[in-house]
């Protein structure tokens, strides 16, 4: 079913159609939230909140624009708000979280296989980017968004996105070569 039709159905009150949108966008939403929060549990909470927010505010979505851009913007803003809250509440614990995360990544991946080793290298490389840089490369390379779309999602100027993209590409090339 076409996305616009799906959204119209949800607006008519068919909440089960929303499950299709969740299926379609949850992985990328998780990736974006994780790039900012660097903690799986918090990223999951952010994604859940973002989906609920988008469901309740779907009436404000303009059907002639792209749903994914609108939705990822909600995910990005929710993640930033969540990160600021965590920062304010317990600044000291953030470093502990990143430690836990590094452990999670190591334990999650089976380092014996070549693919997992490569995965681990890429994850470590992304962790060395700033939060904005990692979100920019994710949206630009994985979702194949234009610089304009990335700028819209992250509320940045086009030149700022280009700078972040350039820096991220350079850092990744240096780490992964």
């Amino acid at each position: 079913m076409e996305e616009k039709q799906l959204i119209k159905q949800i607006l008519k009150g068919d909440s089960s159609s929303f499950a299709i949108l969740v299926d379609q966008y949850q992985d990328m939403a998780m990736t974006i939230a994780y790039r900012i929060l660097r903690n799986k549990q918090e990223a999951e909470d952010v994604v859940q909140n973002a989906f609920v927010k988008s469901y309740h505010n779907l009436h404000s979505f303009r059907l002639n624009s792209k749903f994914s851009t609108w939705f990822y913007r909600i995910v990005y803003n929710t993640a930033i708000t969540s990160m600021n809250k965590i920062k304010n509440r317990r600044e000291e614990e953030i470093s502990e979280h990143s430690g836990v995360h590094a452990y999670d990544l190591k334990t999650e991946s089976n380092l014996h296989s070549e693919l997992d080793e490569q995965k681990s290298r890429v994850n470590k490389a992304i962790q060395q980017l700033s939060k904005n840089e990692s979100v920019v490369v994710t949206l630009y390379y994985l979702e194949e968004y234009s610089v304009t779309d990335v700028a819209e999602i992250m509320s940045l100027s086009k030149s700022n996105v280009k700078i972040n993209l350039f820096r991220a590409r350079k850092k990744l090339e240096d780490i992964l070569k």
Binding site: D23, Y34, F51, L115, K119, V122, L142
Partner: peptide
Amino acid sequence: LKDKLLLSKLKAEDKLKDRILHQINAEQ
């Protein structure tokens, strides 16, 4: 670069979808 970045894409857990739909239905 894209191929390498694809390796870092996360997959949401199955229960996340259930959690989202449950919250929406409960609020509704």
